[in-house]
Each structure stands twice: as C-alpha cells, then as structure tokens.
C-alpha cells in the first residue's frame, strides 16, 4: 500500500464548452464541462485537467465561471491551465475552485513566477508543464528541447535541466508532454519520462501519445510516471477510465479502484 498511480483525463475548454478534436482539427462541441467532469468522476478519474484554449483574451474570464461550476459539483482535484501569466491569474483560478494550476510558456518567460507562486501559495498547487521535443533521434544519449506556445516556439533550453530548475524553484509537480508523440497514438516518449524522473523527486505526469491501455501501463511501469494524462482515448469512448484502471490493476499497478 502506498500512494496510487493516477489517471487524469484532460479536457480542452473553448469559450466555456468542452471541445474535442485531433490536433486542433475538426474541433467539435463535446458538451457541458460540469456534465463531462461528473461523468469522469463517476468513472473513477483521480483528477481532472482543464486546458483553456479560448483564443480571444476578452473571453478568458469564462474559464473562471466554468471552474466555479465544476468545483461546486465535482469533488476531486481540478487542475487548470492555459494562458496563465501572473500571480493574479493564479489566485483568481484558485479562488474559483481550481486546486492546481499548470504553467508552461510563462514559466519560461518569467521563471520567478514559479518561485513567487510556490513561496506565497504553496508548491502543492503549482504544476509546471514541459513540452519537450527530441533534438537527436535514435541517439544513445538522447536530449530534448523545450517549446513554448503549445509546442510552436523552440527555446534552446534542455528539458532535463529545465525540470531540475523548476523543481528547485518550487514546482510541486511536472506535466511532461512529448511533442514528438503528441497526437500519434504511438505511446509516451518513455525515455523522456524516465530521464526526467531520474533527475527530480517531485511527481511526474506523463502526457502525449496515448493510443491504448498498454501505453498507460508502459508510462507507469517503464516511464516511471506517477500519473498519466490522456484525452482522446477517453473522449472518443474507446475506453472508460474504469476499464483503464481495471486493466492496470490486473497488471499489478497500484490504482484507486472503488467498488462501493
């Protein structure tokens, strides 16, 4: 008995509605965030992550009311990311009912934001998202570069060094996405997950590339991730979270399975 591995469904939210699409193509309305979150909670999701993809900044406040509504009905940890730039942004989200916030681009532009947020609010609610892409493929000593703006802009920063730096500055958790694998359904970049895990001692959430339940297993068993995040395999009804948990439990992974 110890802390269980987590399964985290990730929902893209645009203008207050859950949307789903493959690589931002064919985006279609997938429902009311409260209903979708409730459904995942009932299936046994360990947390829920909302990614605000609302393009227009004038509509960005909408996410606050979404979080507020979900937090009044669904009582598992809620993580919210997308466009967070300041301590005020973080506080507004937490006050609306988010438990953790995830930051990528702003952490790179302004690393002090992570130190300040961790210092004043506590590291338990600060998740740093790392979008990493392999610099050399097939090499025996792979290395990865981190990207900002949803994987569009390279930074020249090494992913492992960045993970270490973020832990030092007070990140409570790292959400690691492989840009190479994201959307491919080929499975996580296991070497990336493993390398980061070997260099930090905070929990790691693996993301990017999940196509089936074996991928989740590999992320935990080989990639050593503490949690796995997935979107499409759950949204498109390929698997329920319950099925994923049963599968992983049968393969010896310690999961929270409730059958009360």
């Amino acid at each position: 008995m110890t802390v269980t591995k987590r399964i985290i469904p990730c929902l893209d939210v645009d203008n207050g509605r859950v949307v789903k699409g493959v690589k931002f193509v064919n985006i279609k309305d997938a429902g009311n965030p409260v209903e979708v979150a409730k459904r995942y909670n009932d299936q046994g999701a360990d947390e829920i992550t909302f990614l605000d993809i609302t393009a227009s900044s004038s509509n960005r406040k909408t996410i606050l009311s979404v979080v507020e509504k979900v937090a009044s009905q669904v009582f598992i940890p809620l993580t919210v990311g997308g466009g967070i730039k300041s301590l005020d942004d973080i506080r507004s989200l937490l006050n609306s009912g988010a438990d953790k916030i995830t930051i990528n681009t702003s952490a790179i532009h302004n690393p002090d934001l992570i130190s300040d947020a961790s210092e004043s609010i506590g590291n338990q609610c600060i998740v740093v998202a790392i979008d990493a892409k392999r610099k050399t493929s097939g090499s025996t000593n792979p290395s990865w570069e981190i990207y900002t703006h949803g994987g569009r802009n390279p930074t020249g920063i090494d992913a492992i060094a960045w993970a270490i730096e973020m832990e030092k500055r007070g990140a409570g958790e790292l959400l690691v996405t492989s840009m190479d694998k994201d959307g491919t359904k080929e499975g996580f970049d296991l070497e990336l997950m493993k390398s980061i895990n070997e260099n930090v001692n905070i929990p790691i959430i693996a993301s990017g590339g999940v196509g089936n339940l074996d991928d989740l297993y590999d992320g935990i068993a080989i990639g050593k991730a503490d949690a796995v995040l997935a979107a499409s395999i759950f949204h498109f009804g390929n698997y329920t979270i319950q099925e994923a948990k049963e599968y992983l439990t049968n393969k010896g992974i310690n999961m929270r399975v409730t059958n009360e």
Partner: peptide
C-alpha cells in the same frame, strides 16, 4: 524521508488509503 531507493516522493501527492 525521501530517497531514490525507497522511491518515496515528496510531496506525498495523490490518492492513498
């Protein structure tokens, strides 16, 4: 107490019995 050996991470974050 945390170490790579016991694979205990801090914070203790997540679901436990």
């Amino acid at each position: 107490s945390s170490s790579k050996k016991n694979n205990i991470k801090i914070p203790h974050m997540g679901w436990n019995k």
